[in-house]
Amino acid sequence: MSDISGGSIHPPSTTFEPSKNSGSSGFDAGRIAEVKAWLVSQFDAVGKDVPDFEYTPRSIAHLHNIATLSQAKTQSATIVANDFRQKASEYRSQAARIREILEHVGLVQESLPSNVVSSSQVLANVANLLNIRDTELSSFLVAMADLSLRKTAVEEKRAKVQQESKELLDYTRKAIARLTYLKRTLGQLEDDIAPCEAQMEHWNTNLAIMDSKERQYLLQYSNYKAILNRVGYSPEISHGVLVEMAEHRKELEKKTKPILDTLRSYQDLPPDKALAALAIEDKKLQYAAAEKHLEDVLQSAFASSE
């Protein structure tokens, strides 16, 4: 049977006849005849008429390819079938010859005991099962060895497959455990969404307040800086420098207080012009030295702050 059966072609209303301008279309008349003959033979084989179809170069080329392939397969199938028929005829001839020989020696199946016949059938079945052509012991041994090797290979493959199945089962169990853990973690995360969103909202509110405070503080800082620039503030009179100068002032006051007390005590003495002049000169020198020390301390303080 070919590759095309009845009903496999769905034709339009045109018939399978060349058009009037087929000579100018360049179609091969021999190819058209081959396709038509092949279609007729295939549809006649199933008792059906060739259906109508559109006569185009594409359809003719497609059908010609199918026809060529079908004829090649049919020819191959015919060759194989003829070969099988010839082999079957040879096997029948050989069987008849062997039966004739067995009849001459009295070993026909009808004259053998039933146990011999059954044993022969078992032997033949085993030979067919082992795929051997004779019943020699060596053939059976070779077939059994080959079967044993194949059995060993199958057992090895089975052990390997079992090991792989065990590993896959282990991986599957681990994957299921991880999936369960991930689902539980996902559930916990979903439960934590609402508190986290509330916390995020609180943080956003605080962030907005802090941003507003930052802008306020920056504005105040700019205002204070402008005020300091307006009053002539400089780093030399910063809080640290003033504190250090105040400490030095306290130390100088401690040093000059005994001198002032001594000067006040001189006011209670009777007036002696010469002694008073000497005492005044001495105190002036001490006072000048104290002022000089104070100036040195202030200069050193200014230099360190710079």
Rank of each mutant, 00 (worst) to 15 (best):
E236C: 00
H62S: 08
I227K: 14
R173P: 00
G6C: 03
V297A: 10
A208F: 08
D296H: 08
V231K: 04
A45G: 04
A288N: 11
V142L: 06
K157V: 04
K48S: 00
H239M: 12
D211V: 00
N65F: 05
A88V: 14
N206S: 08
A145M: 06
S111K: 11
A95D: 08
A277G: 02
D28L: 00
T15F: 12
Q286N: 05
A81M: 05
L218F: 06
E251V: 05
S148Y: 07
H239D: 15
N115L: 10
D268G: 05
D296E: 13
I60E: 02
Y266K: 07
T256S: 09
S76N: 07
E17I: 06
S305R: 15
S114D: 11
H248V: 02
L63N: 00
A153Q: 13
L168R: 11
T185D: 05
A159K: 15
D146Y: 10
Y221S: 12
D191N: 09
N125E: 08
V142F: 07
E236M: 07
K48I: 05
A246T: 09
F27C: 05
K292W: 00
E100G: 13
Q299G: 04
H10M: 03
S304T: 12
E190L: 11
S111Q: 15
S19L: 09
